[in-house]
Design a protein around this nucleic acid. Structure first.
Lengths: 242, 242
DNA sequence: CAGTGTGAAACTCTTCACAGCA
DNA sequence: TGCTGTGAAGAGTTTCACACTG
């Protein structure tokens, strides 16, 4: 589900790419574990067993333990994991010991929703710039930041590590090109459609229609298989990492 | 990426679950293919080769052909695929020949952004209800629909197949429970955190912080590996279906 | 002969079974 | 005794190589 997929370049096998590293599937779940640990920390709980944490994160305990083993985890046999220590370890692995500066491009409904979303600060990210190309919007204040153009950002704006694209689909590729040109190598894309970027740039795409269509597939499957001789649909607790 | 992960229930092997079906990984890519086909259709292009369509969707041509082979595809050797026929086939497989009624729960910034998003109609979905629990919002008109409460919806609202949760995190589980109680078996969750639902309910979750943290992991990895003796990062064109 | 369809191989990911330690 | 950590087995996915066909 997140899912990595090659497009260009020779394929470097995971076994080589991962020199001293963590499998991609595990990376996709580390955020879930971190998210599950936070409320435990807030409740003053200091220790948690893999079974319990796995339930909170929505995975199996063996999976959790295997994942954590890749970061050379420090669980205690017979006891469990130290909540704060584990959270710190995962945060370090994900690179959240520093704050990554983020720009949001496109201040339509979605862009504004993202800008006002609380999930950035305190989780390793800070919005440092907001960009739009509508003259009526540029210069206005949104969430305490002055909206600029992409050109202004490249020219005289703050340094940015991650670009979030929340523009209409037709503009997304051009925006991505400009973000890449100004040195950004991580892009989160909310516009539908595939972005073509150089190999060294990471892109993750979130598309509402795609998600709904996947749900529709299973919904249809369910409706069809209720009637006949086939009582197996193996329904399972479904979740997507991203 | 989208990724499926069991949590409860005995594990039904894919080979059994997929009786006459399509692998989960393939299902996750069918929407991408459909999305890539639409502009071709609009341009009046009637035929496309797997190499070209794969490039538009951001996958490899072998992957595309293998995926399509699972729906018993009707490509023509030496020629390619009929654009309209292929689009129709995929749409049918995904269950988009009918319109699925959708409810959006939570009309904060995100919920409103989703409500005004154009990606629903014409793609197999229609928003038939908007729900919020704020008395100041209930009864108002948003995007041509009158906002109701969840209780009203269960009581006297239209039938709904898919629920979209766009509430704050603390409310999400309770909302999911109520959606399930009224018979909804497909949920798209935008609130951070794991939802616990019965086996027969499908859930997909989209979480901004998770996506950003995965990007941050790779960004950090890139920064660390630029300097030393390790010139392999196997940079690849990254994309997520989910 | 260009391009699809597909078994087989390679690889990744998940689950199992159990050794090992506090 | 209880729970972690992990090699090995099993399941799923991707890629390869090439047979096949319009």
């Amino acid at each position: 589900m997140s899912r990595l997929r090659g497009a260009r370049a020779e394929v470097v096998p995971e076994s080589v790419r991962r020199a001293g590293g963590v499998p991609e599937a595990t990376v996709g779940r580390l955020p879930l574990y971190l998210r599950a640990l936070t409320p435990l920390h807030d409740q003053g709980i200091t220790n948690v067993a893999s079974e319990e944490l796995a339930a909170l994160a929505g995975v199996r305990s063996t999976q959790l333990r295997k994942d954590l083993s890749h970061l050379g985890s420090y669980g205690v046999r017979g006891v469990g994991y130290d909540v704060d220590l584990l959270a710190a370890q995962i945060a370090q692995e994900l690179g959240l010991t520093q704050e990554w500066p983020v720009v949001i491009v496109g201040l339509g409904n979605l862009g504004r929703a993202l800008a006002s979303y609380g999930g950035f600060s305190g989780r390793g990210f800070r919005i440092v710039a907001l960009v739009d190309d509508d003259p009526a919007v540029v210069g206005t204040q949104v969430e305490g930041l002055t909206v600029t153009t992409l050109a202004d950002l490249a020219d005289s704006g703050p340094t940015v590590a991650i670009g979030v694209i929340a523009t209409p689909a037709p503009a997304a590729q051009a925006v991505a090109d400009q973000l890449v040109a100004m040195g950004i190598r991580s892009i989160l894309n909310f516009a539908p459609g595939h972005l073509t970027v150089p190999d060294e740039v990471g892109v993750r795409s979130v598309d509402l229609a795609t998600e709904l269509q996947i749900l529709a597939f299973h919904e249809q499957r369910r409706l069809l298989s209720v009637s006949p001789e086939d009582p197996l649909r193996g329904g399972r607790d479904r979740e997507v990492a991203g």
